[in-house]
């Protein structure tokens, strides 16, 4: 083959909805997160709660206004909405969970990545205050399994993590709609394999060198897993994510002169990008990874309480009362 296969993958990506509609600037992302947060705040003000009912056909409704909402406001302080930073932490927490759940089910990386990308895209339109990330997380995993032809029944998935599977089905359409039915997404893993294959060929690697390249690939995949937890998949094309992961991995293994390889790659691709432009992107991805933090359980406790109270103040009150009897956290949407 004269043309490495991952370049064809790239060609496929070039005509994809992923490239056309789902790669943003950092400013875009900021505005989208802010807008979703703003809308949830308004809902809270108007209805006294932010939780949206989702029907199985994707139709939505706001909660019935609390008849005693006004009284509540007077008696207690109005529930406080989450800040965008808190929303971000919450999303980060559940994105981490997605990898967890997928690992538990031994799903391939591709499913995990697809679910993560679905999840990220979903919350470009919605606030976690409107749709609970736990539900969306599971629904995204379910949807990813379907879209990637790796079928798991909703019931099986629900059982595996002790959640009501009807909730998954109820949220499926709203998830698909929010994704604009753009179901084909590109993760860095396939490109990574392609890059390493290409390296094997071009170095005519044998034995020891071959093993080193494979180790480098494994490390790079773990790096890519980290990248997938950041905003990077919404900001950069999958090929750059893969290169960033490979570069990181090469720092550990020191197998190759990456700069030279990138140059040859760019020239083969007839790319208009220069090495320095590419380096800027790869550095930006690196820095997203190093800045990314997965929230701790303590962080979560506080945010989760806040989330509950603004999604559904009345159930929060109830659950407060119940707390003496049961340690279980209440799940207002589980019914």
């Amino acid at each position: 083959m004269s043309r490495p296969s991952f370049l064809n993958n790239m060609a496929d990506f070039l005509t994809s909805t992923h490239r056309a509609k789902w790669i943003f600037s950092p400013q875009d992302l900021k505005e989208k997160y802010k807008a979703a947060n703003q809308r949830a705040r308004q809902t809270l003000e108007k209805y006294g709660a932010t939780r949206m009912e989702v029907d199985v056909d994707g139709s939505l409704s706001y909660p019935e206004p609390q008849t005693d909402a006004k009284d509540n406001v007077e008696k207690h302080s109005r529930p406080k909405p989450l800040k965008t930073e808190e929303e971000q932490l919450l999303r980060a927490f559940y994105e981490f969970k997605i990898q967890d759940v997928c690992d538990a089910f031994k799903f391939p990386r591709k499913i995990q990545a697809t679910a993560l990308i679905y999840f990220k895209r979903f919350y470009l339109q919605w606030s976690v205050m409107e749709h609970h990330p736990k539900h969306i997380m599971l629904t995204c995993i379910y949807a990813a399994c379907k879209a990637e032809e790796n079928h798991v029944s909703a019931e099986e998935l629900g059982k595996g993590i002790e959640q009501d599977h009807q909730m998954i089905l109820n949220n499926e359409i709203i998830v698909f709609q929010s994704l604009g039915f753009d179901l084909i997404v590109y993760a860095p893993y396939r490109t990574l394999d392609g890059l390493v294959n290409d390296l094997e060929d071009s170095l005519q690697a044998k034995d020891e060198q071959l093993q080193m390249l494979r180790d480098m690939n494994e490390t790079a995949k773990i790096e890519a897993d980290k990248i997938m937890l950041t905003d990077a998949p919404l900001l950069f094309p999958p090929g750059q994510l893969a290169l960033a992961a490979l570069r990181k991995s090469n720092e550990v293994h020191g197998v190759l002169d990456l700069e030279r390889y990138l140059e040859s790659l760019l020239s083969r691709q007839h790319s208009t990008h220069t090495i320095s432009e590419l380096t800027v992107s790869l550095n930006a991805i690196d820095s997203l990874v190093s800045k990314h933090e997965t929230p701790t359980a303590t962080d979560m406790k506080h945010i989760d309480r806040k989330l509950k109270s603004c999604r559904d103040p009345s159930s929060h009150e109830k659950s407060k009362k119940r707390k003496h009897r049961s340690k279980e956290t209440s799940n207002p949407l589980q019914a």
Binding site: F6, D12, T15, K110
Partner: peptide
């Protein structure tokens, strides 16, 4: 047409249509 010889992201796995669906 836009070549895509190696089928990005379309690995059909061993899905069988007669299954759950």
């Amino acid at each position: 047409p836009r070549g895509a010889v190696s089928g990005y992201g379309v690995a059909p796995a061993n899905y069988s249509q007669g299954g759950q669906y």
